[in-house]
């Protein structure tokens, strides 16, 4: 593998690895916080892809950076909402395992 930091391939491969790790975590995790962490990995994969494309293949290199800034702000908002929901769920069920939250399971 070509380990040059001035070529896009290595960054694209790392972004694909982050996406795969996030998907694996989403499938295998049994608690809500673990699934949230896996979701953050997928966000990071998207951001890394944006910055790579922005560095190598774009005429206006400010657009991708601004988009990634917006992704970060949305991720922060999502985490704050999701964690408060998780705390509320823990208060009602005394558990945040995804197997225990089966009230709507017909």
């Amino acid at each position: 593998m070509n380990l040059s930091y001035d070529k896009p391939e290595i960054y694209l491969a790392i972004a694909a690895f982050l996406l795969a790790a996030g998907i694996y975590g989403l499938i295998r995790r049994r608690t809500l916080i673990g699934m949230l962490i896996a979701g953050e990995l997928i966000f990071s994969a998207a951001s890394l892809n944006f910055v790579t494309m922005n560095r190598f293949f774009v005429t206006d290199p400010a657009v991708g950076q601004i988009f990634v800034l917006f992704i970060m702000a949305l991720a922060a908002a999502e985490v704050s909402i999701a964690l408060s929901i998780i705390i509320a769920v823990y208060r009602n069920y005394r558990s945040i395992g995804s197997k225990d939250l089966s009230e709507l399971n017909g």
């Binding site: 391939e9 694209l12 972004a15 996406l19 795969a20 293949f57 005429t59 206006d60 290199p61």
Partner: peptide, 20 residues
């Protein structure tokens, strides 16, 4: 995804309008 990203022939931009 890795194969797609590595094998696709990405087009280089003509000129950058700013430096980012």
């Amino acid at each position: 995804v890795a194969k797609l990203g590595m094998s696709h022939a990405w087009a280089k931009p003509a000129a950058a309008v700013n430096t980012g």
